[in-house]
Amino acid sequence: MLQWALDALLGLGLLWLAWCALMSPNLLKAIVLFVAFGLLMALAWVRLDAPDIALAEAAIGAGLTGALLLAALARLRFAYADEETVGSPAQEEAKVRFPQWLPAVPLLLVVAGLGYVVLSLPPYATGLSTEVTANLESSGVSNPVTAVLLNFRGYDTLLELVVLLVALLGVWSLDGLALGRETAPGPVLDTLSRFLTPVFILVAAYLLWVGAHAPGGAFQAGSVLGAAGVLLLLAGWRFRAGLTELPLRLVLVAGPGAFVIVALVTMLMEGQLLEYSPEQASILILFLETTATFSIGATLAALFFGGRPQDDKEHT
């Protein structure tokens, strides 16, 4: 009964927060509500017995996405500082022509249809969990999620790391504004960042190591590392000039690069792409996860920073 009440509260709270975030005319308020939504969503994943996704949701969905949205908002305000409104004239026109409730009709129909389908699904689907359990022994790790991500379907994860790299390439090709350096950090932020950064690094290392047999892994560890990077950037820390070129790019590419090289080498040794021999599987997975953690952390912090670091050097 108590669990039912808790779940109902969670579900309604999620809907309520999503509605408020979408309806809020104030962008800052909308972002704060979005972060709250992410945290509640993480709780919902915990209730659904998916602690791996809960960790990722809290770190990436709520934490870093929120930071990225706030960074985007700060740039919007900077870019539109002279103009009175941020909304473009085209949006105003669209408002006049269409009644706002009109898109709601097809959306409600879709929701009703999908709701019916979801309710008609069998409540429990084993999926591939029996196969995963049967092959867990030879996968090199004992956490089934890590086994799927880094071994059984490692090829997908390789491409996912490429997605992250492409996102950064896209941001860098836009000539965006890099994070300004004019604001000096207050004493609180300065002290806090000095205390927290080592803790973040320690947490990231723990999450990376524990991923082999419990919830955790490269994505969670990388996002914690990325959060440390964001904090340092906010506190005024900058890449030293010589490090923003090739060394930074090497760190950004390390994750997908190591993955591709391992894919090629394993294919030459074992015959199939990313086929690990059971004896070497666990050390290979640890290697891949470590490089991926550095890349994910660096990419997320670089996304927050915005433009290419060398552009920043040119402007000042």
Binding site: L159, L169, G170, S173, L174
Partner: peptide, 27 residues
Amino acid sequence: FNLYVTLEVMGLAAVALAALTGSRDAL
């Protein structure tokens, strides 16, 4: 599912390429 991941890589890179000139129309 693998097709979905390839679609993501392709789509995101295609969007970045479409915005390459940085002009108002392109953005």
